[in-house]
């Protein structure tokens, strides 16, 4: 009968694996950005990523996210990124296009952090095509 004690944990493991689905791998678009702890622009950053970084988008019945946000995994971190920052194709990044010029600025960690925050704080828009 001792094996009955293991049953709940086995059941949990099973739901854990079936509830989640990897939607696909996408690429991060802006120059720098953050994987957020929650789906709010000002929420804490779990990690800073840069343009063209691959991001795994996950769908999980346990996580409900608004339309504008995606639940993602980046390395060991799981958090949230605005969907408008993700693209299917690898983007052409400023730092990739002009690596020597960009490296010359030798940006420090606080500048990278703020650059990511800036992209989160921008309210972006475009007027429609005539």
């Amino acid at each position: 009968m001792w094996w009955l004690l293991l049953l709940p944990s086995l059941l949990f493991a099973d739901t854990n694996s079936t509830d989640e689905r990897v939607v696909g791998t996408f690429y991060f678009n802006p120059m720098f950005g953050h994987v957020h702890q929650s789906a709010i622009r000002t929420s804490a950053s779990l990690t800073t990523i840069q343009c063209s970084h691959p991001v795994k988008v996950i769908e999980s019945s346990k996580i409900s996210v608004s339309k504008e946000w995606a639940y993602v995994q980046v390395a060991d971190y799981r958090g949230f990124i605005r969907k408008e920052f993700l693209s299917v194709k690898r983007p052409e990044c400023f730092q990739g296009k002009y690596p020597r010029f960009f490296d010359a600025f030798n940006l420090d960690l606080s500048e990278l952090y703020y650059w990511g925050r800036l992209n989160d704080q921008f309210i972006q828009g475009e007027t429609r095509v005539k």
Binding site: L118, Q121, F122, I123, Q124, G125, E126, T127, R128, V129, K130
Partner: peptide, 21 residues
């Protein structure tokens, strides 16, 4: 963003990208 976009479009400014901070 919505209000500004509407104003721009009403005044005939199309395909204009903007960022507000």
């Amino acid at each position: 963003d919505k209000s500004f976009r509407t104003l721009m479009q009403d005044l005939g400014f199309y395909q204009k990208k903007f960022k507000i901070l």
